[in-house]
C-alpha cells in the first residue's frame, strides 16, 4: 500500500511522535503546576544520551533506557530547583535548556571526539521506530487515564490548581510536583531517543530544532489535556509533513516551519477560545 496520501499520513505520524511525547510531558508538568520550558533541553538530553549509550554499549535498547533515564534526571533537576530551592521555573527552565545544549555538545566531543554530530550507531530500526510511534499514542491514553481516573492524577491536578489545599490534605505538593517533572522528563527523553535512535541513527547539535517549544504550543492548543495536546501535536506533525510534500511548490520552507509558532502566537490572542491554564501553573510552592 502506498501513494501520496499514505506517504503523507506516514510522514505525519513520524513527525508527530516526538511532539506527542514532549507535549504530554508539558501537559503533565503544567497540570502539576510546573511550567516546563525546559522540554527542549530534555529532548536534547534524551537524544544525546540514547546515542551515546548505544555507541558505548552497542545496544540501542540500552540507549533507549538510558535516554529515558537521562530525560527523567533532567526533569528532576527542574523539579528539585522549583520545589526545593524556590527557583523561578521560567528562569530555571531557560538555564536548563542552555545547560542541556552545552552539556550535550560537550559530551559529543568527549564521547565521539568530534563536534557537531556523532558517528552513526545501531538504531532501533524501522520496526523500533513504529513501536515508539504507537507507544506515543498509548502514552496519551495512559496519561489521560492516570490524570482523571486515579488518586495520583487527582493529586497532580489539585497541585496545579492549589498546592496549599493538597498540603492541608496531608500530602506534600513538592513531592507530587517533583515526581510529575521526573515522569515528564522521562517522556520527553523518550521523545528525544525517538529522534536520534528511531527516526535517525545519530545525534547532531540542534537536532531537536525547537520541538520542545512547539510542544508548549501544543499544550496550550490542547487546553492542558492529554488528548487535546496529542491532537495539536498531530496537527503540527502534519504541518511538518506538508513541508516535505510542498518542497517544490514555491512556498518557503521557513514559513512552513514557522507555522506552529505563529499558530501558538495566535492562540495567545485567545482566538482558539479561552481555555484556562491551571490556576497555579508556574507558581512556585515552597515551605
Amino acid at each position: 500500500m502506498s501513494g501520496p496520501l499514505v506517504d503523507f499520513v506516514e510522514l505525519t505520524l513520524v513527525k508527530a511522535a516526538p511532539l506527542i511525547y514532549a507535549a504530554l510531558a508539558g501537559v503533565l508538568c503544567e497540570r502539576a503546576g510546573i511550567l516546563n520550558i525546559a522540554l527542549e533541553g530534555q529532548l536534547t538530553v534524551g537524544a544525546f544520551t540514547g546515542v551515546a549509550v548505544a555507541f558505548l554499549t552497542g545496544s540501542p535498547l540500552l540507549g533507549l533506557v538510558a535516554g529515558i533515564a537521562a530525560g527523567a534526571l533532567a526533569g528532576a533537576l527542574l523539579g528539585i530547583a522549583a520545589t526545593r530551592f524556590g527557583v523561578d521555573q521560567i528562569v530555571a527552565g531557560t538555564g536548563l535548556n542552555l545547560l542541556a545544549l552545552g552539556g550535550c555538545a560537550f559530551g559529543l566531543t568527549v564521547v565521539f571526539g568530534q563536534p557537531g554530530a556523532s558517528s552513526e550507531v545501531h538504531s532501533l530500526g524501522g520496526r523500533g521506530e513504529w513501536i515508539l510511534i504507537a507507544l506515543a499514542f498509548l502514552a496519551a491514553i495512559v496519561l489521560h487515564f492516570a490524570l482523571y481516573r486515579t488518586a495520583w492524577g487527582l493529586r497532580v491536578r489539585a497541585c496545579g490548581e492549589n498546592p496549599k489545599a493538597v498540603r492541608s490534605a496531608g500530602i506534600d505538593p513538592r513531592n507530587v510536583r517533583l515526581i510529575a517533572t521526573m515522569i515528564a522528563g522521562g517522556l520527553a527523553g523518550l521523545g528525544g531517543v525517538y529522534l536520534s535512535l528511531g527516526e535517525l541513527d545519530l545525534y547532531s547539535d540542534g537536532m531537536t530544532a525547537g520541538r520542545g517549544f512547539i510542544a508548549l504550543a501544543a499544550v496550550i492548543f490542547g487546553r492542558w489535556t492529554p488528548f487535546g495536546a496529542m491532537g495539536a501535536a498531530i496537527g503540527f506533525g502534519a504541518l511538518a509533513a506538508l513541508q516535505f510534500t510542498l518542497q517544490r511548490s514555491g512556498i518557503p520552507s521557513e514559513l512552513m516551519q514557522a507555522l506552529p509558532y505563529l499558530a501558538a502566537l495566535a492562540a495567545l490572542t485567545g482566538i482558539a477560545g479561552r481555555a484556562r491554564a491551571p490556576q497555579s501553573d508556574g507558581v512556585p510552592y515552597t515551605e
Binding site: L154, E161, N162, A165, R167, S168
Partner: peptide, 14 residues
Amino acid sequence: ELVDRLRVWENVVL
C-alpha cells in the same frame, strides 16, 4: 484551602 476547580467529592477525598 480548597481546590476551586475540582468537585466537592474530589476535595473531600483528596
